[in-house]
Design a protein around this nucleic acid. Structure first.
Lengths: 262, 262
DNA sequence: CCATCTTTGTGCACGCGTTCACAAAGGCAT
DNA sequence: ATGCCTTTGTGAACGCGTGCACAAAGATGG
């Protein structure tokens, strides 16, 4: 976001890789790496797309933003493409990362193998609990929050992972940003507010589950005629002011429109 | 639309809530729950949007898909909206969930508080390691993979969480689906293939990090005139066939469009 | 050297999502 | 009641992402 005033030629494509494409590059890279390990020399857009779980036209268009790698009639050179995508994603350099909040999740992240591989390196583990200080997790000693600024500065860290409870997340975030962090991966169930120029991506288990539940409910509520669930009446009258008003729904739970194929 | 009230806004398909809206409902719900706990009676779209980190127009449009809750000149009744969104998301009912793969991550998930709250209940923990069987994690005894089908059937589970290594994910997925699971939350770094009608959402740490790295690299590569990084030559000649060809880029690393404010 | 066959790269159209801007709706004060 | 003020609900415009379909590019075989 924060697309202030970018008077860019828009379609100039010089380096304007669409966000959606960027989000898929890691997927392609993973598939390509697997092919590389099997010493497969070249791959067609069709094969690679299938391995990455996307449409082949989409894949070709994605690659077209990177340049004209690939040979017509043949396909893409696996090694070459691995390199190009890695470079594009910035994985040819080393990214030190700090993890703040070494609870269950933080520890799991520290132990996560895919973390260390491919350009990322856990530079430090940070927690506010003094009892944890010095104790090694995944072979790395936990350091106290007091050291946060120093750690980031000393190691030139620009990416931070927040795995604290929700209540502490914003505070930690502020300190990370003040210390120079410009990219944050947030696992805490909170909306973080950051200044312009700082990127935040969030991973939220409960949101994902709720989205699944929505679809699950829809699937379940279409064939069976059971549909009890009438119970659990609304918490109270709708708005306190507009008691007379009522949502123009067909009923207290007017779902089951029985439309929507699937 | 706007045939007046008492009629569904959407064109024929009364409950066609856009996917993007569904993905934001949990966000609104979280903000509303916080307001509810502080006994705030009503909230305006502006306030709520700010709390949820979105645009107020977007929020209003999102709510408009649910119906005409809200009172003009006043705002939305917090309690009422909490109920409506919960119902829409299917959180008024109980969703048993199984977690497969009780490693570091699986254990962290099992312990995750936000899991149990709000409609979800960990029905069982499953792992292929016989050594784990019976051992309690987060107060729940781990069961062996052999029991998978029975567990799902007995408990009527329809949502499964995969936290296994990548190599086992597809196999576990197949068994889950065969056993009747229709929604999967996948933490393994793999593309899962599932039959029609099964929803999969993936949470992939390393993909998120790589996306951050991309943006981080872009930020870093624009102001400084240093820009070495020429090193690390490509792994070999480009395609084995088109050695003469070369990406028609402006240079080996033709970035620095020098746009983007910062 | 030419014909044919394969696969890329992309112009184009379509649909979804976002945002703006404003009329309608309702509360509130006078 | 009447008019003013606040806030919702939404029509309409815009931009992005997706997928189709095909011409261009190059390999391959004769």
């Amino acid at each position: 976001m924060a697309t202030g005033r970018n008077h860019r030629p828009a379609t100039s494509r010089s380096r304007g890789i669409p966000e959606a494409t960027v989000a898929r590059l890691p997927l392609y890279l993973r598939a390509l790496t697997a092919l590389s390990e099997r010493s497969v020399p070249t791959v067609s857009s069709e094969e690679l797309a299938s391995a990455a779980g996307v449409n082949s036209a989409k894949l070709r268009k994605d690659f077209s933003y990177l340049g004209s790698y690939g040979t017509r009639g043949v396909g893409y050179d696996v090694e070459y493409l691995v390199y190009q995508i890695s470079r594009e994603l910035g994985l040819t350099q080393d990214w030190p990362v700090v993890i703040v909040g070494i609870g269950n999740l933080g520890a799991a992240l520290a132990n996560y193998g895919g973390f260390a591989s491919r350009g990322f390196r856990v530079a430090a583990l940070i927690d506010a609990d003094p009892g944890l200080s010095g104790k090694p997790v995944a072979g790395i000693p936990v350091q106290h929050t007091d050291e946060l600024e120093k750690i980031i500065d000393d190691n030139g860290v620009s990416i931070g992972v927040i795995a604290t409870p929700a209540g502490a997340a914003q505070q930690v975030c502020d300190r990370l940003v003040a210390a120079g962090i410009t990219s944050i991966l947030n696992f805490a169930p909170t909306v973080l507010s950051v200044p312009e120029g700082v990127d935040v991506r969030k991973v939220d288990l409960s949101i994902e589950l709720q989205i699944l539940a929505f679809h699950e409910q829809r699937k379940a509520g279409e064939e069976p005629a059971s549909a009890p669930e009438v119970d659990t009446a609304p918490p109270a009258a709708p708005p306190a002011v507009a008691v007379t008003k009522r949502p123009p729904e067909s009923g207290p739970d007017g779902d089951l429109p029985a439309v929507m194929p699937a």
